[in-house]
Write a protein that binds this DNA or RNA. Structure first.
Lengths: 352, 352
DNA sequence: TTGAAAGCGATACCAC
DNA sequence: GTGGTATCGCTTTCAA
């Protein structure tokens, strides 16, 4: 049998409290005794206090669950996601807390994973509205921080996000100010299917994913203000949030007549793909076709991409802080961070 | 007070076993009763069986700890690491197991993180030999799988890796076969400091990190066979495993006289940086300077990089499998996967 | 089917 | 400083 605290206590001839103290409260007993206990434990092959038991007793686990929709590798491949998670990880580190990545498959086990997660709270991020795990998470009755989305179904949920629509509204005005009329929008999750193709604006009315929905709403506002008919806007679904998918999606806007003179993407990854597509066709960004991204990831500056900068790292830090060090005032549990339109060379006046 | 199983049992008027069964063994009680229990639980705001308590009782947690040296964001930025982790995640998903990422800071808390991790086992990967957490992990007395390294200090540890030295020996022969004599080697962790600079071969004798040590050993064998003096080989430490660091390191080999005609890097990330450095100088890979990488990441093919292919995804899957579904025969717990030299355009005959 | 009782392995609290 | 006792919340026999 594996040795336990009790085993060690018996061998040393002390009570279990004392052994426990030897591990958790070194200053509660004499150094010699502590030494003796630790030595015996080592000889016995005692592995130290069982974390599950400790968690049960203390009511604290020392880990938070990270929930997102996609596969591990995909989520971490996105520079924005990486920054966000780095922020969360920073706070976690500071609080000596682990990050439990939960593989969310699509079957029944979605809920099982959430149900069994040994965590003190959940950080949800990039989880489409339709995903089954939302209910499972709420049922757990643990602190929740949602990034990128207000959780209407859970009014007390802490939240850190940005004003998505305001950000794109602003960017949209930048574009319409340049006189663009032939506009295309690229996003993943316009539809739940993972395929790259134009999607009729009718479908777009009920975007299933909060972030895309809001960002499109902002663009819609700006374009409509400028007298552009929303139904004239070409909206293209990208199979995923990747550079390649962005390039593929851009083809639909570039290889038709009239060609789009401005292409806005909901992420820099996609927008970089659009730039790739331009380069392939010998088109110059900002002159022949204007391109706008979102996120202001590291590569955006080098690519001279006009984009909307959002503080991903800070967002992660705040999400982590909200979870690990909750504010007394619930009002402080809802944080909206600023965004900024970063104008670079990829946008300019519409060609005649 | 938060409701517990007991609370629900009392309200419904059954024993806790029955409530427990309602959750864990639906077929052990009548559907009506189960329904009634679940409804009451919902009304009471009972969050379902407490995972910590369940873990304690069952002796199984449903999560494995992932240990690596670097920051989260760094680890996941490396395409090789991402592939590896995707493999692990795949197996984890299949076993309904979570992945606990442990923030390994450098202070005392290194051990605390490991001590408190509520996990069923550890998967160690990319953890330098000198890292303090090795001891803490061994003390936990849990199943361990080590990727990329034999753990001599823990002979029973399961292991999945490749023959690092054989792989680079082979690549080295490819290079010497082309007649190269002016050779440079680029690696991170030649020294424990994170700075990009040439490192004298004397220091290199005691490389602190297993992977770099082995890969260098292979190259050394091949070069020595060809009559190249190991002390004539320029070895350059890269501050980190990134493309930028690779380019920076390459400068030391390219901007000196005589210029290196072959540069071997311990990763494709670094090697891609080397190609960047060549491009900057108008040098042609495979004609002016030959470049070899390691890993065969997705970008390597497009960059026409000669490299050593290793099955990262498969490695991750096996690591996960070894941990979650251990083989009966301990001999099967030590897996060495094949590597393959993939020759592309970045290597060629040494220029006269 | 259902229930009673016995742990799982530790920590908190309060005497001593 | 040290030891007893209750308890954290659940699952698991084993009887009924």
């Amino acid at each position: 049998m594996r040795p336990t605290l009790q085993t060690v206590a018996d061998v040393v001839g002390v009570s279990r409290s004392t052994v426990s103290n030897a591990y958790s409260k070194p200053d509660q007993l004499s150094p010699e005794l502590r030494e003796r206990i630790l030595d015996t434990a080592r000889d016995l092959g005692y592995a130290g206090p069982n974390p599950a038991a400790r968690s049960l007793r203390k009511g604290r686990v020392g880990a938070i669950g990270i929930l997102f929709s996609a596969t591990l590798s995909y989520a971490f491949t996105d520079p924005y996601a990486v920054q966000f998670l780095r922020g969360v990880a920073e706070m976690a580190e500071r609080h000596e807390t682990g990050l439990l990545l939960m593989p969310l498959s699509d079957g029944d086990s979605v809920s099982a994973a959430v149900d069994n997660a040994v965590v003190d709270g959940f950080c949800i991020y990039c989880l489409p509205d339709w995903h089954a795990s939302w209910d499972a998470v709420r049922a757990r009755n643990l602190p929740i921080v949602v990034a990128e989305r207000r959780d209407e179904g859970h009014p007390d949920a802490r939240y850190v996000g940005i004003d998505e629509a305001a950000a794109t509204r602003n960017a949209g005005r930048h574009i319409t100010g340049f006189g663009h009329r032939q506009v295309a929008l690229i996003a993943d999750w316009i539809i739940t299917e993972r395929e790259t193709r134009p999607v009729a604006v009718g479908e777009v009315a009920e975007l299933p994913y909060y972030v895309t929905r809001e960002r499109f709403a902002g663009y819609r506002d700006a374009l409509t203000e400028a007298g552009i008919d929303w139904s004239d806007v070409l909206t293209i679904n990208a199979a995923q949030n990747s550079r390649a998918a962005g390039a593929e999606a851009a083809a639909y806007a570039l290889d038709r007549s009239p060609r789009a003179t401005a292409i806005m993407a909901v992420s820099d990854q996609l927008a970089l793909g659009v730039l790739d597509a331009l380069a392939e066709r010998g088109l110059q960004p900002g002159r022949d076709v204007s391109v706008v991204g979102f996120d202001d990831i590291a590569d955006a500056a080098g690519a001279r991409l006009t984009t909307i900068s959002q503080p991903a790292l800070e967002k992660g830090r705040i999400a982590g802080g909200l979870l690990l060090d909750p504010p007394d005032d619930p009002a402080e549990g809802r944080v909206v961070l600023p965004t900024r339109l970063v104008v670079r060379a990829s946008t300019g006046p519409a060609p005649h």
